[in-house]
């Protein structure tokens, strides 16, 4: 066992449990902050999907529903697999944490790879807004706004995925050194909260980017 089950001498806490509860609370607060970060983004979407409805819908129709749907499935699975890593951590099963953690990370990378393929297609089709934007006609302005939103939202979500994958790999590395036990697996839990949040953001982005206005 390494650092987790004892407090270092400068710690402001009374007991390890006291410290671990605080870590969980800190992550929830950070996620509240994150929710408002993405909330601002959703507000932009809400406003323009109403005020520029026709062009916005034209943009939605050009997204790749197949990749979007497959990616949704991949990410939900990744979250589920990571939950098993959390359960393994609580049992003190370090090998389980590594196994399920790596599974979740690989699925996360698959999501990013598919997203990359999708972006590649879109760049080739000149769907990135600008002077050469592919969609013409009277609704072109609204469609360009949609794609501004699309690229920024998927970029921001992708950055959160990268951070999440990094955190999961960090947890796996700790587990490989046998860091967790039945008494202490808080980092696995804290990273799990973050990873579920990243998943949840995608659950909102998927309908906004691919479904609403498609028909």
């Amino acid at each position: 066992m390494s650092d987790g089950s004892v407090l270092d001498h400068h710690s402001p806490y009374e007991t390890p449990l006291h410290r671990d509860e605080s870590a969980i609370a800190g992550m929830w607060l950070f996620l509240a902050s994150e929710a408002l970060l993405f909330g601002g983004l959703f507000l932009v979407c809400l406003v323009y999907s109403q005020t520029r409805a026709a062009g916005w819908a034209a943009g939605v129709r050009h997204t790749d529903l197949t990749i979007g749907a497959v990616n949704t499935l991949v990410l939900i699975t990744s979250s589920a697999v990571y939950t098993m890593a959390v359960a393994a951590g609580q049992r003190g099963d370090n090998r389980g944490v590594v196994r399920f953690g790596l599974g979740a990370a690989v699925l996360g990378m698959a999501f990013l790879a598919l997203k990359g393929v999708e972006w590649g297609q879109e760049f080739r089709e000149s769907l990135f807004p600008g002077p050469h934007f592919a969609l013409h006609g009277p609704d072109s302005g609204g469609a360009a706004l949609f794609y501004s939103f699309y690229f920024l939202a998927t970029f921001l979500h992708g950055m959160h995925m990268v951070v999440g994958i990094g955190l999961i790999l960090w947890v796996c590395r700790k587990a490989r050194h046998g860091a967790f036990g039945p008494a202490w697996s808080t980092p696995v839990d804290v990273v799990g909260l973050y990873w579920s949040f990243v998943d949840l953001v995608w659950m909102l982005l998927f309908p906004l980017l691919y479904l609403i206005g498609r028909r």
């Binding site: 902050s33 994150e34 929710a35 408002l36 970060l37 993405f38 909330g39 601002g40 983004l41 932009v44 990135f128 807004p129 600008g130 302005g141 360009a144 706004l145 794609y147 501004s148 939103f149 690229f151 920024l152 921001l156």
Partner: peptide, 21 residues
């Protein structure tokens, strides 16, 4: 603060790539 963050990020994105926001 995060709402300011996303607002400024949108502005930076708009300014950097000359796309509409």
């Amino acid at each position: 603060t995060p709402v300011l963050g996303i607002t400024l990020l949108l502005l930076a994105f708009e300014r950097l790539f000359r796309v509409g926001v």
